[in-house]
């Protein structure tokens, strides 16, 4: 499991800034598209329903970035590529950023900035309730994502708190699955990927219990 020596340090220095750029890119792209639309340079660049397109785009980005967050540990453990763990927190934070924008776009473009209307939707519609719950659960994780907070909480408490990513990822993918008219397409793929990532952890947990000495690396 240790991987080769090259992988153990590969990308150690440039990984963090490069990830930051990659995580901002989807937002920059969206900003460009909206500018092109609103200036009438290319009014239909997002198709004929740009509002829905934007909702989906932000939601899909949030879920995919969240799935990438969850894929970091398996990749590190399987390949031995240690530095990849350096970027996990900022990827998780980006997932929150896109999920928050997703909610904000819904509130602004669909609910006329009315919190009352939003609350009505949350209470009435299961999939919105699930999505909102996932977003709310992300808040403590985002707030405690700084080095200072890790120090203040202590690694053990911090780890236990950030265990919340598992239930919130399930909520987010359930929100995604329930949104579509039929079980078809991307939401199903998201669900399968999440299931694989969670099963991997269950498997590893089981292995640890069976052979504690071996799995201690």
């Amino acid at each position: 499991m240790a991987g080769n020596a090259y992988l153990r340090t590969f990308g150690k220095h440039w990984m963090k800034p490069l990830t930051l750029i990659a995580l901002i890119a989807p937002f920059a792209y969206l900003a460009v598209l909206w500018t092109l639309m609103l200036t009438n340079t290319d009014p239909y660049i997002m198709g004929f329903n740009p509002v829905q397109w934007t909702h989906r785009y932000l939601g899909d980005t949030a879920i995919r970035v969240l799935l990438v967050t969850l894929a970091i540990s398996p990749i590190r453990d399987i390949t031995g590529w240690q530095p990849i763990a350096l970027i996990r927190r900022r990827i998780g934070l980006a997932a929150f950023f896109y999920a928050f924008l997703h909610m904000l776009a819904y509130l602004g473009l669909d609910r006329e900035w009315s919190l009352a209307k939003l609350w009505e939707d949350v209470m009435l519609r299961t999939y919105i309730m699930l999505g909102m719950a996932a977003l709310v659960l992300m808040i403590p994780l985002a707030v405690t994502s700084t080095n200072g907070m890790i120090r203040r909480l202590g690694r053990k408490v911090w780890d236990r708190l950030h265990w919340l990513i598992y239930p919130l990822a399930i909520l987010a993918v359930a929100h995604n699955l329930l949104m579509v008219k039929l079980i078809d397409g991307d939401p199903t793929i998201h669900a399968v990927i999440l299931a694989a990532l969670l099963l991997w952890r269950v498997g590893r947990f089981g292995l640890k219990r069976l052979k504690p000495a071996q799995a201690a690396t």
Binding site: M37, L38, N40, D42, P43, Y44, I45, M46, F48, N49, P50, V51, Q52, D121, R125, T126, Y127, L178, M179
Partner: peptide
Amino acid sequence: PRWSQASERVIGGKGGFN
């Protein structure tokens, strides 16, 4: 059951924003 039918987005108006 999953969304309101009280309003609708008008598709294909002048300009991109619906």
